[in-house]
Amino acid sequence: TETYKYDDKREAEKAAEEFRRRGITVTVEERNGTWVLESK
């Protein structure tokens, strides 16, 4: 599991889209005002 942090929800979702395009499952969730993207 890799974790990436973003200040902006849009950025996180854009990154998530890129991962999914490569066939990687990711989750995006907000933690304490930071958007956390996790690849499984």
Rank of each mutant, 00 (worst) to 15 (best):
L37V: 14
T3A: 09
Y6G: 01
I24T: 04
T27G: 03
E38Q: 11
L37S: 01
E29S: 12
K5S: 13
E17W: 07
A16E: 03
G33Q: 03
T27L: 08
E11G: 05
T27A: 07
R20C: 08
K5D: 04
W35R: 01
R20H: 05
Y6P: 01
Y4E: 04
I24C: 14
K14I: 10
Y4C: 12
L37F: 03
V26L: 05
E29G: 05
D8R: 05
G33S: 03
N32R: 03
E30R: 09
F19A: 03
R22S: 04
E38I: 15
T27I: 11
R20E: 04
I24Q: 08
E29L: 13
R31F: 08
E30F: 15
E11M: 10
K5R: 13
E30D: 07
K9N: 03
W35F: 07
K5P: 04
T1D: 09
T3H: 10
K14Q: 10
T1Y: 14
V26T: 04
I24A: 08
E17T: 06
E17G: 05
A16N: 01
Y4G: 05
T25S: 12
K40C: 12
A12T: 01
A16R: 04
T25W: 15
G33H: 03
R10I: 12
R21M: 09
T1H: 12
A15G: 03
S39L: 15
T27W: 11
T34Y: 15
R10W: 12
R31S: 06
I24F: 15
K9S: 05
K14F: 07
E17F: 07
R21I: 08
V28D: 00
V26F: 08
E11N: 06
E38V: 15
E30L: 14
K14W: 07
Y6I: 02
G23Y: 02
T34F: 15
E29H: 12
R10L: 12
T34P: 01
R31N: 06
Y6D: 00
T25K: 11
Y4D: 04
N32I: 02
T1I: 13
E30V: 07
V26Q: 01
V28E: 01
E38A: 10
W35D: 01
N32P: 01
E18H: 08
R31A: 05
A16W: 03
K40W: 14
D7F: 14
R20K: 07
E18A: 11
E2L: 14
T3L: 12
L37A: 02
A15S: 04
N32M: 05
E2W: 14
K40H: 13
E2R: 13
T25N: 13
K9H: 07
E18S: 08
T3G: 09
W35K: 00
V26K: 02
R22Y: 06
E18F: 09
R22H: 07
R31Y: 10
V36A: 03
E13T: 05
I24V: 09
E2F: 15
R10P: 04
T3N: 09
Y4T: 07
E29T: 14
E11I: 06
D8N: 14
G33I: 00
K5V: 15
E2M: 14
D8L: 07
A15V: 08
K9V: 08
V28N: 00
S39A: 15
A15N: 03
R22M: 09
E29N: 08
A16S: 03
R20I: 06
V28K: 00
D8M: 05
K5F: 15
I24K: 07
A15H: 07
S39I: 15
G23Q: 02
I24Y: 15
E13N: 05
R10E: 14
Y6H: 02
V36W: 12
T1S: 12
W35Q: 01
E13Y: 11
N32D: 12
E2D: 10
T1Q: 11
R20A: 09
R10A: 14
E2S: 12
A12L: 03
Y4R: 10
N32Y: 05
A12D: 00
R10D: 13
V36M: 05
R10K: 11
N32S: 06
W35Y: 07
E11W: 04
V26H: 02
V36P: 00
E11H: 07
E17M: 09
K40L: 13
E30N: 11
A15K: 08
K40D: 10
S39N: 09
V36N: 03
T34V: 15
R20V: 04
K9F: 10
T25M: 14
A15E: 03
W35L: 01
N32A: 06
K9P: 10
K14D: 08
T3M: 11
Y4S: 05
L37D: 00
R22T: 04
K9Y: 11
K5I: 15
E11R: 06
T27V: 11
S39P: 13
N32L: 05
E18W: 14
R21F: 05
K5M: 13
F19V: 02
V36E: 04
I24M: 12
E2C: 15
V28T: 03
G33D: 03
N32C: 10
V36L: 06
A16D: 00
E2T: 14
A15C: 09
E38P: 01
E13S: 04
A16C: 05
E29P: 00
T25Y: 15
S39R: 14
E11Q: 10
L37K: 00
K14P: 00
V36S: 03
K14V: 08
K40G: 11
R22K: 10
K5E: 11
R10H: 12
V26I: 06
R21T: 05
K40S: 12
D8Y: 05
A12R: 00
R31C: 09
T3D: 06
E11L: 10
L37E: 00
Y4L: 10
A12H: 00
R31T: 05
T3C: 14
E38K: 11
K9W: 10
K9L: 10
W35T: 01
T25Q: 13
T34W: 15
Y4A: 06
A15M: 09
R22C: 09
T25D: 13
K9E: 08
A12G: 01
T27C: 05
T27H: 09
W35S: 01
E29M: 12
R22L: 10
F19P: 00
T3I: 13
K5A: 12
G23S: 02
N32W: 05
W35N: 01
F19S: 02
L37Q: 01
Y6M: 02
E29Q: 11
W35H: 01
R22W: 07
E18N: 08
E30P: 04
R22A: 07
V36Y: 14
F19K: 03
G23H: 03
E13I: 09
K9Q: 10
Y6N: 00
R10S: 11
R10Y: 12
R10V: 12
T1E: 09
S39E: 10
K9I: 09
A16Q: 06
T3F: 11
E38N: 10
R20Y: 06
V28L: 13
F19M: 11
K14Y: 07
K5T: 15
R21S: 08
E30Y: 15
E38G: 04
R31D: 06
S39G: 08
E17P: 00
K5N: 09
L37R: 00
E11Y: 04
K5W: 14
V26S: 02
T34H: 14
R21A: 09
D7V: 12
K14M: 11
V28Q: 01
S39H: 13
K5Y: 15
E30A: 07
V28S: 01
K14H: 08
F19R: 03
A16H: 02
T25G: 06
V28A: 02
D8C: 07
V26R: 01
F19Y: 08
E13R: 03
I24G: 05
R31I: 13
T1A: 11
R10F: 12
A12P: 00
T3Q: 11
E13H: 06
T34E: 12
V36H: 07
E29I: 15
Y4W: 13
N32H: 06
K14S: 08
A15D: 04
D8I: 05
G23M: 02
A16K: 04
R10Q: 13
S39F: 15
K14L: 11
K5G: 07
G33L: 02
E17I: 08
D8Q: 06
E17Y: 07
A12N: 00
T1G: 12
E30C: 14
T25C: 14
R20F: 08
A12Q: 00
R10C: 14
E13Q: 08
T27Y: 10
R21V: 06
A16T: 02
R21K: 11
F19T: 01
R21N: 07
D7M: 14
G33F: 03
